[in-house]
Design a protein around this nucleic acid. Structure first.
Lengths: 263, 263
DNA sequence: AAAGATATTGTACAGGGTAAGATAATGAAG
DNA sequence: CTTCATTATCTTACCCTGTACAATATCTTT
C-alpha cells in the first residue's frame, strides 16, 4: 500500500485514514449519501414545507422529517431525488433542484437520532452526507396517497422538532428559493396554475419574500415582463371588479433567457 | 428486517436495495464521498484553474486533475475541503466555498479512469459522490512547495484531458464564480492585494466575466461603492502617470451587507 | 520639447424601481 | 336606483443606475 501511495499520493487514501471507523456495535462504518427534499409551498397564506410523519417505536410519538433516503449505487443524484420523493410521497412532476450538501459530523450529534438509527437498522451506518434538493410546489395538487406515510404542510415559522439538521436545511432552502426566484423567475410560474391573476402572482411573491408589494408598481412590473401575457379571460364570482387572467409564455421566456446569455 | 422497514418505511433502506454492488473484483461496493477543490485565479492575464499533476503508472504520461480526495469519517465537508487542499498543495488561507455536488454514475464512464482507480487502489471503490468547492485565489502567493505534487495554473480555455467529470465541474465553477462575485463582491477583494489600483480591479472583473468594461463607467462604479476607499498612496515606478491605490474597507462592507439584510 | 503610455474625469440619455393619486368595474347594502 | 366597499387597473413624477461616449492630466522616455 505504501508503494501505491507514492505513485498516487493525492487521490488514493488509505482505508484506515479515511474510511474506516467503528460504531457502538463495533462494526466497520462507511460513509453514506442521502438525498433530502425540501418542498416549499403556500398553504392558507403561509409559507410551508412538506414534512413526512413517522411514529417513534420507542416513545410512540409522532415525529416529523424531510422526505429523504439513501441513494442507490447506480443512480445520479438528481434521479435519486425524484425517486425518493416519489417513493416517500407518491409525488411526480415536481421540479427538484439541488441546492447544497450537508455533511457536518454534528448532524448526528443528537443522541436520540443516532440511537433511533442504530437500533432501527442494525446496519453499518457511518456518517451520512446528504444532498439537499428544493422545489416550489402547488400545494393543492399535492394530495398524498394513503399508500404513503402521512405528510403535513407545515408553516416554516412553526416547525416541530426535526431530526438531524433538517431545520437548518429548511432555513437554507428558504434563503435559496429567494435567490432563485430572482435569477430564474420561471420557478414562480411553475408554482402557479396556467391561468393566474396579477393578485395571485403578487401574493406569491409577498409570501416568498415575506414582505408586502405595492399593487400599482407590481402591475407596471408585470407589463414589463414580456413573458407574462394578458389573456381575454376574466376571473368570475368575485364580490368586486373581476381580475384579468394572465399566462406564462414559456417560449418568450426562453428567448429572453437566451438573449441574456449571449450578452 | 421486514418488520423494521414497516416501522421506518422511509428512512431505512435495505442494504441490498441501496448500498451494495460489486466491482470487477467481485467485492462489495460502498458509496464514497470526496471533495474536489476548484481554485481559480488569473495568471498572465488568463483565467486559470489549479490542476495537480500525477504520473500515470501504466503509460508513464503526466496527467492532470483537480485537487481532491475522500473525506474522513468525522470531519465536516468544509473542514475536509480545507484539509485536502492543504494536504495536496500545502495551501492555506484560501476561502473555499461549497458550490455543488456531482454524483452522476457516468462520472466513472471512462474506462481508463475506472481501470486506473481499481488497479491502483485494489480497494472496495464504488461510486464516488464529490462535493465541489470553489475559491478565487491570488496566484502569485500560491507557491506550491516541492513537498507536494507539482501543480499547474492552467487556462480554462485550454484544459487538458481530465479524469472523471472534472472538466464539467470547472465549467460550472466558472459560471458560479460569476454569480457569486455579484452577490458577494468581497470575493473579488479577497483575491486582490490590500492596496490595489482601479485598473487592477477592473482587469480582474474583465477576466472573470470575459468581457471588456468601460473605464469611465467603472470609475463611477467604484466611487459609488462606499467600501472601496481611496488612499493617498500612488503606484510608483511606472513608465507613465502613476495610479492611485484603493483599499477594501471590510467594516463598511459588512455594514452595507447588514443593511441589505434588514430591508 | 515632443512622443508615448496610462490615469482620471463629465455629460446626456434610457430604463427600472419606487412612491403615491386617480379611475374603473363589480357585488353588496341601503 | 344610489351609494358604498372592494379590488383592479392605469397614470404621473422622481430618483437612481447603467451605459454610451471623448477630452484632459501626469509621468517617463527620447
Amino acid at each position: 500500500m505504501q508503494a501505491l501511495q507514492d505513485l498516487f499520493p493525492i487521490f488514493v487514501p488509505t482505508l484506515t485514514d479515511t474510511m474506516q471507523t467503528t460504531n457502538s456495535h463495533n462494526e466497520t462504518l462507511y460513509p453514506h449519501v442521502s438525498v433530502d427534499c425540501v418542498l416549499l409551498g403556500i398553504h392558507d397564506d403561509l409559507f410551508c414545507v412538506l414534512l413526512t410523519e413517522r411514529r417513534n417505536a420507542g416513545t410512540g410519538q409522532t415525529e416529523y422529517k424531510l422526505p429523504g433516503s439513501l441513494i442507490y449505487e447506480t443512480e445520479d443524484l438528481d434521479d435519486a431525488a425524484y425517486r425518493i420523493l416519489n417513493e416517500t410521497t407518491g409525488l411526480k412532476r415536481v421540479l427538484l433542484r439541488q441546492f447544497r450538501s450537508f455533511g457536518s459530523p454534528h448532524r448526528t450529534a443528537n443522541k436520540e437520532d443516532v440511537l433511533w438509527l442504530e437500533n432501527a437498522s442494525k446496519m453499518k451506518i457511518g456518517r451520512i452526507v446528504t444532498v439537499a434538493y428544493l422545489a416550489l410546489c402547488k400545494v393543492r395538487r399535492m394530495k398524498i396517497s394513503e399508500k404513503y406515510s402521512p405528510a403535513q404542510w407545515t408553516p416554516i415559522d412553526a416547525l416541530p422538532r426535526l431530526p438531524f439538521d433538517h431545520e437548518e436545511i429548511i432555513r437554507e432552502a428558504v434563503k435559496e428559493i429567494r435567490l432563485w426566484t430572482q435569477i430564474e423567475p420561471s420557478i414562480v410560474f411553475d408554482y402557479l396554475p396556467p391561468l393566474f391573476t396579477a393578485a395571485q402572482l403578487r401574493h406569491t411573491y409577498e409570501i416568498i419574500y415575506d414582505k408586502p408589494i405595492d399593487v400599482r408598481n407590481f402591475h407596471k412590473k408585470i407589463n414589463a415582463m414580456e413573458y407574462v401575457v394578458q389573456t381575454e379571460e376574466l376571473q368570475q364570482g368575485m364580490p368586486h371588479r373581476s381580475a384579468r387572467y394572465y399566462r406564462f409564455d414559456k417560449k418568450k421566456y426562453n428567448n429572453m433567457r437566451a438573449k441574456l446569455n449571449t450578452i
